[in-house]
Amino acid sequence: MQYATETEVAAAGQHVRSLTKALNGVLFGQESLIDQVVIGILARGHILLEGLPGLGKTELVKGLSRSLQLDSKRVQFTPDLLPGDITGNPVLQEIDGRREFVFQPGPLFANIVLADEINRASPKTQSALLEAMQERRVTVLGKTHDLPRPFFVLATQNPIELEGTYPLPEAQLDRFLFKLEVTRNSVETLERIVNHRELGTDPEVHPIMDQPALESLLELVRRIYLPEVVANYIARVVDATHPGQSAASRGIRYGASPRAALSLASAAKARALMHDRTHASFEDVKAIAPAVLRHRIVLEYNARIEGLGTAEILTALLDSVPFQALNTPRTLKTADA
């Protein structure tokens, strides 16, 4: 494979920076979140956003679609939403004097789909969406329909209103590249929002790139070099999430899957591109590991009783796994020791 060159990376970095700048103009004070959303997009991943209502999740997705000049759809998930409501339904139509079922594409047929409050839909509908996320195609009445490329799902869920919800099973959560937590804004950010926004009006977003440019960016991410030592680090981090594989895994019931390792590698490459590098690094992996792993590990009941959270366990786990598998003799002291 031809690895990405510095020139290509530098040019792509300009585009990515422009994109993040545009999104920062849409969503104030969420630079880290925006960076991670952009990384998720560059890594061709689906993103689960968790946060309270009104924090700008929908605005972010809309801004993203406008800046990328991509087709976007929003689906408000409710318990009575049926799979056909999102995938599309065959409709009986009269064509040339004959009645035929014609497939009417649903909202999934868009480049960016905002699945709002995904945990309110029934498992049946969730499954239909998650299948589409994985296969990037839908099958209706025995006929398969490819989804447009690129295809991203940005789902949201509310962490507090759990009544009448259907929490996503772990196997389905695994299909999301990132689970990002949208936090509340600081006073300064709120002041900035009040000064620069009007209720009921959309922020002005200029297009940054078109679909082919985005496609070439996504292709470039694939060509980012992943050193063997970094791949080894990813493998060891994922392995350490399993019970008994590390001291920090105490309290974890189920660890991360191989898909998590692939997601880490892909996200690390995307982050490297964002930082104008032709190669991924340990730091990239460590930076995006919480977003990749936090929804992929299942804690033990006892750990929850003890008040241990996923964030604490992941922090300890990442601190305990060294970049290299090599040991240092006890006659020497390392700088981080």
């Binding site: 050193p227 490297a272 930082h275 190669h279």
Partner: peptide, 15 residues
């Protein structure tokens, strides 16, 4: 904190 620049350089990916 060279972000694996040496490994990449050893692989011939970057200078």
């Amino acid at each position: 904190h060279l972000s694996n620049a040496l490994s990449a350089a050893a692989a011939g990916v970057c200078p």
